[in-house]
Design a protein around this nucleic acid. Structure first.
Lengths: 191, 191
DNA sequence: CTCGTGTACTCAACAAGTTGAATAAGTGTG
DNA sequence: CACACTTATTCAACTTGTTGAGTACACGAG
């Protein structure tokens, strides 16, 4: 029932179709909870059955109709209940790249280097999108002003965490590549 | 087949029982890939059936016997094959805390603050353990010397990523708590 | 001398997440 | 004007991951 909470968090931003959610929706929630369309549609149906969300069919002219979901009052109550739950477990991180890096000395070093480089490119792209979103949220105001004025600060706080995560990816990746280079050079020199 | 790769990465450090792996083993791999004992035992059996690992029963005097697993040559080959695989997907992050923070403006603010604080304590504890492990790996050498001399640098690189992740948790948590405080004060003042 | 804790593992049942495909119409590119 | 891509959803089959309990013995605290 963890995906459910992420869906509710996303729906706090307003109505969304399963498709919207699948695409990453406002890109905020997608940041710390990505999943497949199938799972979302399945979960949304369950949530509808339990009365946490309601669907409203929007007929569209030149494309398929869509069902826009929004939180019901019961859904908002569920959000309150969820946030009040005892913290429990630390973040689940499953990073295939780090598994590869762990194996780099036995495995294919060049491929691992390429994987790190790809991660860095990805991180750069993500940072660009995050920064755009940040500017959109700030809407011309300073961060200081934003925190003082805006109704909701949750999305901004999570956005900042996403940004720092990606910046760390870049910094670490840079360091790791340099060390691997250095090592390749040493091994070459010393046999 | 992703857990499998993490298990192989862990076994690069040497023999281990299912129990060792479940406890976090060398704490390195556990860093970016945690799971339950049940799943590990299940996966180890499969891997044994496929010849990637071999088990050796160690009879113990005052405690249950254990089965120590180690990588076979086929297992090492699988590591090489795995690291050479095309990168693919970015890290899976599923962070319940961030979901709660996203909901903070609607949910139970005090509980969310407590959850952030708990995460920070956890991060602090983890940093302490990481630092101990780091000192053990360095074994008196400087980082520079370590990278130049040591046979394997993978585990050290992943360790550094784990450390930077936890440091970011602390920094972000600190900022988030301050902002939430500030906000609580503002709301109190302005109604 | 019982209770909790640690070692070491196993079984069963279930919930969550992934993969692949299918439908169906519109929009843009070469 | 064929081909790929985007919107929007659904179905089925499968693999992973989680939860809860149970076995068995040893050790130390109260």
């Amino acid at each position: 029932m963890a995906l459910r909470n992420a869906v509710m968090a996303a729906l706090l931003e307003g109505e969304a179709s399963g498709y919207d959610l699948a695409k990453g929706f406002d890109a905020t929630v997608a940041n710390f909870w990505m999943t497949t369309p199938q799972q979302l549609y399945r979960e949304l149906e369950r949530m509808e059955a339990e009365g946490l969300v309601t669907a409203r069919v929007v007929e569209q002219e030149r494309r398929p109709n869509k069902r826009l979901f929004s939180l019901t009052e019961a859904g908002r109550e569920a959000v309150r209940a969820y946030t009040a739950e005892s913290p429990g477990k630390p973040a689940v991180i499953r990073d295939e790249l780090l598994v590869k890096v762990q194996c780099v000395d036995v495995g294919d070093t060049e491929a691992v280097r390429a994987a790190i480089a790809e991660r860095m490119e990805w991180a750069t792209a993500k940072l660009v999108r995050y920064e755009r979103l940040r500017q959109r949220l700030l809407d011309g105001r300073s961060e200081e002003a934003y925190f003082a004025e805006s109704e909701r600060i949750g999305p901004y706080l999570t956005l900042l965490r996403g940004m720092s995560f990606e910046r760390e990816n870049l910094q670490w990746g840079d360091m790791a590549l340099r060390r691997l280079d250095q090592r390749a050079a040493t091994l070459h020199a010393n046999g």
